[in-house]
Amino acid sequence: MLEIRDLRATAGDKEILRGIDLTVNPGEVHAVMGPNGSGKSTLAQVLAGHPAYKVTGGSIRYRGEDLLELEPEARAQAGLFLAFQYPVEIPGVSNAYFLRAAYNEIRKANGLEEVDSMDFLDLLEEKLKLVEWEPEIMSRAVNSGFSGGEKKRNEILQMAVLEPTLAILDETDSGLDIDALRIVAAGVNKLRRPDNATIVVTHYQRLLNYIVPDFVHVLSGGRIVKSGGKELALELEARGYEWLEDAVGAAS
């Protein structure tokens, strides 16, 4: 589904991603961990097509296409979804309107008919239940004045409505209380299907108790320095990152 080869990216003069290789197959869950500033969000944003980052080398193939050739909207229309580490506030646009616009644009791009607001409300009602949320939140402006946890939950609601093929969750667990974490994780799990895949960026093993990964990767200094199974997350929890950085230092 996703094949990243030797991906290099910069922001301004700063090289942030320095040769990333990652393959994600349908049905898989990959966890990406790593110290602050190691490039996790940059990787996520590059996948979504953020204009601030310049890809200077390597390739990304997504469902057989050259992802880097696609505009951000075309990526979303092709089923890619990024839950932002810092969801953006859009004052003046209601959450319901925004989500319906996105839903319809994606349908349109895929040759499906747009849905009217009544039908959309039915769909929304069902998805709100998935994240255990009251409909009131939908008439508020997108993320405007939302608490940190509400913003994260809103990302998952969007994901539930848009039903992506590849979802990238960038620290969706940070800032969530224990109940919210359980709700969000349950939501993600309910959306799992054999034909879609998830990349979860997280600092905490705790989330991975709920969303159990098939693979865990450690990103450090813009490279994946170690990959393993779910037990790697436990090891990181116990030992931190330093031993890995030392190992990499010794090897290079």
């Binding site: 951000p72 909207e73 229309q77 990024l82 506030e89 925004f98 996105a102």
Partner: peptide, 22 residues
Amino acid sequence: ARFYARSRGIPAPAADRLLTYA
């Protein structure tokens, strides 16, 4: 905000109109 809207599948010109309207 423009990128956020686009990342949800809303094409750039529509995103601009949406934000302007907002």
